[in-house]
Design a protein around this nucleic acid. Structure first.
Lengths: 302, 302
DNA sequence: TGATTGGATGTAGCAACGCTGAAATCTGGG
DNA sequence: CCCAGATTTCAGCGTTGCTACATCCAATCA
């Protein structure tokens, strides 16, 4: 009889396009995936993979088989969801894809509470850009995505997915202690003209937000320093090289020589959880969302 | 992820009603099936089997899971069929359920030819009563049934199955050499009144046929000796204890002291092959039927 | 009640499987 | 022509899953 884990390997190759990528997605080495598919070829006496240049392509039969595998895997996931739903308590594996600041500001406490309350649940985490994580969920690499959008670019609900709001993440302008802004109680957008900015590299959501927001104030921001991590940005601020827009989530205590000044109206990142509609019945999903919302409230209240 | 072979074990228990019967159907020991299901219970953290008296019953969750397993297994079989069809040559496993005389008179030559022409095919055989073998095919214990009916009780095509005729098996009256019939060129049904019969035990198709046929001649047959195997019946005939109706298929050379006399009109067992409609596209099925028909023709012609 | 049978489950051991890591192979590009 | 990227092959090893045997439990019979 056809073996489901081998079919899953074939399906992963079909979806990810290469043996290596499939292996990474499944958590194996490329060698393991290659051997599984070789065994599947021997069992079915049908060539499935053809070397094409440096990579591989699926034969006709393999594409058909991979499509069937997709149905099978969907059925199995459905069965697992039903099983968990009948049991009523979170169980199985829950992989959460989340963005960097949530990975330290929100997830640790929420996942710890989840694991403590539900020992049958195997929680996992995977850091990913907010605009990539829904795709990871769609492809089954993750079960739950924690993503965010900005007030000026709302996140559309992707096909086949549901979402729930976790909370609003407020952002402040972080300036060197010696900067004129450091003595101000608050700032408005017009104040920001002419500053040197420290921000994310192009392509990230935060970079885009900064550029587009400041453009609405009628000027092109001067993005002098572009580094991915807020901790590095704050170090640059402390060194007096510029100012940065830093969200409060996961920001931690500010380093010496850095002052956070509120901006009015306050820029908001809205944080969401997203999951496949088919998995909506999973208690693990519902419970994870509930605990993230609770954790958020406690942080905001305290 | 749920394991398909464990789900198959659970499904087999659901279908066959006990761990032992499931194990027999799957070709394992009861211990293996019990361990598989125990592992499935641990993985899903859900009780699946409950001891009820001497046997077991499925829990609610297990019944649901078994139903899903049935869908999965059907999908897998469909995929295997498609794979074999694309390849165009018989492969995989083909289990044939057939009645006793076909098991020695027809199947050996046909299966040998099948195995010789198609080394990728793993042929298996299973002797079963003609009225049981369609059920075995339906439940997936066998892929192909070789069954027969009698002229007076035609076989209905069971739900979800297709059938093809293999050939007609003619039957003669076998009598002791000293019997008055032994010198006759032929007999008619009216001649048979008052004889002592040697036949199958009640419940077998052949027993029923004899009783019903002779009843249409207006008398109740005297079934003095009831044994299952024709070789034993012929030994009883040779001993002069009675007469028997013996089909030619698989009859072999008659023992000394036994004479076969034709009956007019000649009683006919019609031999069929049956298979699941879903498996009709399998080259293995088509080829097996073709070779059985060819073998039959060669025997009839030679 | 005790003995017995039919069935499921637990244990030990062994063969087979499936993974990893390293080496080999192959392809396309500098 | 060599190198980098990717897959496949190979050896080794831990794990799995089977069988055989023993044990346990429930129903039946004496």
């Amino acid at each position: 009889m056809l073996d489901l884990s081998r079919l899953r390997a074939l399906h992963a190759v079909a979806v990810h396009g290469s043996v290596g990528a499939a292996a990474a997605a499944l958590g194996y080495t490329p060698s393991a995936v290659s051997q599984q598919i070789a065994k599947l070829e021997r069992e079915t006496r049908t060539p499935l993979l053809e070397r094409r240049g440096r990579g591989v392509t699926l034969t006709d039969a393999a594409q058909h088989l991979a499509a069937t595998a997709e149905q099978l895997l969907a059925l199995v996931e459905e069965a697992e969801t039903t099983l968990e739903e009948r049991r009523g308590r979170p169980m199985g594996r829950l992989t959460v894809a989340c963005f960097a600041t949530a990975a330290r500001g929100l997830l640790p406490a929420a996942l710890a509470a989840l694991a403590a309350e539900h020992p049958a649940l195997d929680t996992r985490m995977l850091e990913a850009d907010p605009h990539l994580s829904p795709g990871l969920v769609t492809r089954g690499v993750a079960d739950l995505a924690v993503a965010h959008d900005w007030d000026i670019a709302p996140l559309p609900t992707p096909e086949g997915m549901e979402l729930a709001a976790i909370g609003d993440d407020l952002c402040d302008i972080c300036v060197p202690a010696g900067h004129p802004f450091a003595r101000r109680a608050g700032l408005v957008r017009a104040d920001l003209v002419g500053e040197r900015w420290i921000c994310q590299p192009p392509g990230s959501t935060c970079h885009d937000w900064l550029v587009r927001t400041l453009r609405t104030s009628g000027h092109e921001p001067d993005l002098a320093y572009q580094v991915a991590e807020y901790a590095s940005q704050l170090a640059l601020v402390a060194a007096g090289l510029g100012i940065a827009l830093v969200p409060r989530l996961g920001r931690g205590p500010l380093p010496a020589g850095v002052v956070a000044v509120p901006l009015e109206p306050v820029p908001v990142r809205r944080v969401y959880a997203l999951w496949r509609t088919g998995a909506a019945r999973r208690p693990a999903i519902r419970e994870a969302v509930r605990l993230m919302q609770r954790e958020w409230k406690e942080r905001a209240g305290g």
